[in-house]
Design a protein around this nucleic acid. Structure first.
Lengths: 336, 336
DNA sequence: CTCCCCGGAGTTACCGCTAACCATCATCAC
DNA sequence: GTGATGATGGTTAGCGGTAACTCCGGGGAG
């Protein structure tokens, strides 16, 4: 049965070369101290010489462990996820785990497919963005018997480990800042409108209701957010509600786009219109004026995820639990 | 030997349930038309009921094919790679392949580690960013016997398939545009300075030399680029060379940061200073004035990669080859 | 001098799945 | 009726590793 290009070097090839059995080679490569030094050196030499590539599929199959963890993210271009990824990766690498990434494009169906694929490869853990999944995906995850992390937003009923922040509270806190500064006609501008954006919007709404203010100044779209879209949507809002005083944009990109549009229109920010974004990306400090935003502890979220994951992988059992890492409202110049 | 949580459902479990052998179940799931309809329906029902998760590690081991391809990218937050990723993913998904992603953080050592991991999982193909790899990685790739794509920049000696554009020519073309418009003191501002940035800089230098202009106005740093860094570095350049007329920034982020800095200093762009970036990201059209840039065909690069990869996976052999997809110099208002 | 322990290497069995080949049976042309 | 044919499902033998146990020889304790 001719399998792939037969040139692939196996443990057996090394064993034959050195004159031992393959289990000895396996040990020499994985637990060097279990093999006598001279033998180990000969094995390492032979392995290098032959160009051995360990077959992790076989290893994972035999041992049930793969020393890798998968992270599924909705978007590759969103800096939110890259910060989280860095936090996770740093923590895991120190413990000898490799982080594999999957791109869901904000689709829980695609997420399901990737969960299936990575679980099928035998990853030792899984990190998901968000708390919404397909029914089938949840079933897979429950049966998989590996630690699962849901991140970014919080849920009262986590599948397993949940690390994030209260998006609604954050949206509410930012809106309350607007209110405290005397703004009354406060709009919401949202794109993509994934679950987190919806939660932020709910926070905006709650704050306005609590202060007895109108919630009518709201414009959202399912389109992916971009600078251009932020500018265009702001234009629509101003046309529709010329008396608008402030706009809470559901992320920093939209806010920056809206700010650029104001600059084109020579509309003074914050005097004629106040703006705020969400996340605390690099761009909020770069613009003039700097944008108000909610800074989310993304790096820390990643680090905590790695900690929890490693604890669980190390055998510490624990109940499903949520961990709230908070947020910080930052008042850039864009709200005065 | 108690392996992972024993609850994991296997083909055998389904087979027992239905009263057939596991190979029949395997066939029913992979090649439905090879099994009689009633039996197939019973198998599918049992599979769903038991919550079967196929073990791809075992499948890949037995068949030598995994129906997945790995893409290794240096940065998750750089939109350049997300466009390429989307192009690849779209093409591959139609053919039933899954795209897996690895993050190298611009380190060829980390790249090597990921190549090892993914090859070890038996991916059917590999896409790498750039043409620089460790010696060991190149050896692994040659032995692996799977198609390998190197992308973004071009190389005269590709490992296998090479799809990208001539970064040096692009840097040169942009610089020549500056020259044609009458600028003489043209600087280069670079961060991260990976291989592609170096090639662009070489293009800048070549254009200046050809026009007999000075190449002294050059400031680079190994730090990762960001808006803030673009602003800071522009500040340093202006302090050092107050007579600077134009600056070619090695990517759009830096250019935008530089533009923001000009706005803060009330330095008119392009009248007092011309600016240009590289890549053609969303932000170049959002700023006032829009930024000049080199638009790279990233989406198209991804699509071509998928085509070439699928052709090779379909059995079409071919020699190592480079494919140049070109670029387009776009004159935003930032160079007048 | 035994006995026991321990480091170092080998044996056996199996992880979950699939390729290749084989067995069976109904159908059909001649 | 007979063999060829095709559709369907089973048998066998691994893929490349690793866990758990076994075996062997040497050294220290009693």
């Amino acid at each position: 049965m001719p399998r792939r290009t037969s040139g692939r070097v196996t443990l057996q090839d090394i064993a034959d070369r050195v004159g031992v059995t393959k289990i000895t080679v396996s040990r020499a490569l994985r637990e060097p101290q279990r093999v006598s030094l001279p033998l180990r050196l000969r094995i390492e030499a032979a392995s290098a010489e032959l160009g051995y590539i360990p077959n992790h599929a076989a290893g994972a199959l035999a041992s049930g462990r793969s020393h890798s963890v998968a992270l599924l993210i909705p978007s590759l271009s969103n800096a939110v996820f890259s910060d989280i990824q860095r936090g996770i990766e740093e923590g895991l690498r120190a413990a000898g785990y490799q982080l594999l990434i999957g791109h869901t494009g904000y689709s829980i169906l695609e997420e399901e497919r990737l969960i299936d694929t990575y679980l099928g490869y035998g990853v030792d853990g899984l990190v998901l963005s968000g708390t919404r999944h397909t029914e089938h995906a949840e079933r897979l995850l429950r049966r998989a018997g590996v630690p699962v992390v849901e991140t970014l937003e919080l849920t009262p009923a986590p599948l397993d480990i949940n690390v994030g922040l209260d998006q609604t509270a954050a949206g509410r806190a930012l809106t309350e800042t607007f209110i405290a500064r005397g703004y009354r006609r406060i709009g919401f501008l949202g794109a993509r409108m994934d679950h987190r954006a919806q939660l932020r919007m709910a926070g905006w709404e709650a704050a306005l209701r609590a202060a007895d203010l109108s919630t009518e100044y709201c414009l959202t779209t399912p389109q992916p957010s971009s600078y251009r879209l932020g500018g265009e949507m702001l234009g629509s809002m101003l046309q529709r509600w010329p008396a608008l005083e402030a706009v809470f944009c559901c992320n920093d990109d939209l806010a920056a786009g809206a700010l650029f549009e104001c600059q084109r229109r020579r509309l003074a920010v914050p005097d004629a219109l106040a703006l705020a974004g969400f996340n605390g990306l690099d761009i909020v400090e770069a613009t003039t004026p700097p944008l108000a935003t909610v800074v989310t502890p993304r790096r820390r979220i990643g680090e905590v995820i790695a900690e929890r994951l490693l604890a669980r992988l190390g055998g510490q059992p624990c109940r499903p639990q949520s961990e709230d890492l908070g947020f910080e409202v930052r008042c850039g110049g864009s709200i005065g």
